[in-house]
Design a protein around this nucleic acid. Sequence first.
RNA 1: GCCUCCUUAGUUCAGUGGUAGAACGGUGGUAUCGUAAACCAUAAGCGUCAGUUCGAUUCUGACAGGAGGCUCCA
Length: 581
Amino acid sequence: MPNQNVDLEKMRHSASHLLAAAVLELHPDVKFGIGPAIENGFYYDFDFKSPITDLDLPKIEQKMREIKNKKYVVSGRQVSIKEAKEQFKEQPYKLELISDLEKEGEKEIGTYTLGDFTDLCRGPHMENTSEIGEFKLTSLAGAYWKGSEKNKMLTRIYGVAFATKEELESYLNMLAEAEKRDHRKLGKELGLFVFSDLVGSGLPLYTFKGATVRKEILNFSNELQKDIGYQEVHTPNMNKADLFKVSGHYEKFKDDMFRVVSNYSKEEYYLKPMNCPHHTQIYASQKRSYRDLPIRIADFANLYRDEKPGELTGLTRLRCFCQDDGHAFCREDQIKDEFMNVLGAIKIALQTYKMEYRIRLSLWDENHREKYLGEPEVWEKSQKLLEEILVENKIDYSVGLGEAAMYGPKMDVLTRDSLGREWQISTIQLDFIMPKRFELTYTDSDGQEKTPIMIHRAIVGSPERFMGILIEHYAGEFPVWLAPVQVKILPVNDAMIVYAVALKKALEDENIRVEMDDRAESLGKKIRNAELEKVPYMIIMGEKEKESGKLAVRSKKEGDLGAIDLKEFLKRITKEIKEKQ
RNA sequence: GCCUCCUUAGUUCAGUGGUAGAACGGUGGUAUCGUAAACCAUAAGCGUCAGUUCGAUUCUGACAGGAGGCUCCA
């Protein structure tokens, strides 16, 4: 398998050169950016003299095929810096890359030629254009040169490429399938949440059903954090700017926070984008002894972030959301235990949701120290400590350079949505800095005042984002414990409603979320509706059931379960709910 | 915020330079029905604001909202 992957990457990379060659033929005055292979395909960044549109993609794709079929040999050559500069003198972006390489001490640079097109590239490539497999250009996007907002925006053309036509088609089919489980689509179909232009973008309104799912997620997180000693607190949604001036958020995130103006005071207020500063003030409200530590508090308060409009998506990126957020204030010798406790809770959560994930050790970027608070020594120390915890506990992880929080390194849990995009969910963060800035202290056993360490953590991250990911994960078919409606009772005719009502009451007494479909519709239609609503259990109430006293149960997963005693059904469903199956 | 694209009833979708149809859903009625859609009737809409035009839902622009990227994500 690994070899095949390497070949695919090489082939996709060659496909990006093929794309560039085709674009050059159609737009001779184009300037080239870069064009790497990516997951499932490739892209190339161009600077067009006049903008192109979606309609140009088929033409370019056609040209790519023509060039491919000419069976050009793809030949690599090392050239001197000087020669490269001469060769690419019409290409400003390439010249910039050549200068960068020169600064890095390179003496020679690789080039690859394919027909009339030569690109700056270290390769490797397929030997002949005919070896490039099946491809399709998929979309057009703007992308900043070298990934910086300060640079010019180039036009990026994305494509997908596979070895065979079958693989390409199966990938495109997979995408079409993924679209069906998109949480924005399912959220609407299942009536979980809505948006309103009057309320504003990124501000979801949860219906009773959606609010029920959200509440279950919160309850579960709360259960898990209670088990490891966290106490739920409640703090306001806004505060004076001063709080964020002390924490350092004001300077760094001022533009990303909503400002609130009072009619009566000159004080500047902000809606809070996170809970940590508030929690420091609960800690600071009393004298703390080393014996009191760790102090663990958790908060589900709404958070507000003034995200740029183009950054919002469904429930995964919002302007109002909450976190199953908690902070532990502890002594240095307690850090490892605290970490492992939280990690344990996170593992239970993700196992219960049957979620796949990976762990990232998020470190700072030494070359951009301005993005972080605190001294390098503190960073060295805390990053080393975090890494130790991961290694000692044999936890698989990858390193995310520059992904640290402003105040410290993190251990992040990432998962994917149905389109394969990665999202951060759980996180545990080590912070030596915030407690210092807020001058938090405790009295140690030797009578000395010392500064506690702060651990920031979230079990599923933002329950709203997590709900979006869960909807896609389950394709809308929630396990019974999460399902907004767990049982739907379907009376066969009006005469059965009275028995259905009694049954509904009996189930509600056991805290089961139950609905009754007493509309004057056919049974077939009621069943169809309940199926589309993805209700885990249907109970059909008719003459037969009235006579026998048994229940006709239909399970979403297993189909018709036949006649069951009420007691037996209750046992089954309450067990499933309790065990979160 | 930037690039490309999109916006027609509550929803999913047709359609036109001379102001629009379907299905489901809603409402009113008839049928009381056994494991994925009973039947009849009925109400309801061209995102907003400008411009071009005799006339704009249709063409152009701005704004709003949405999609895919980029940037950002405490």
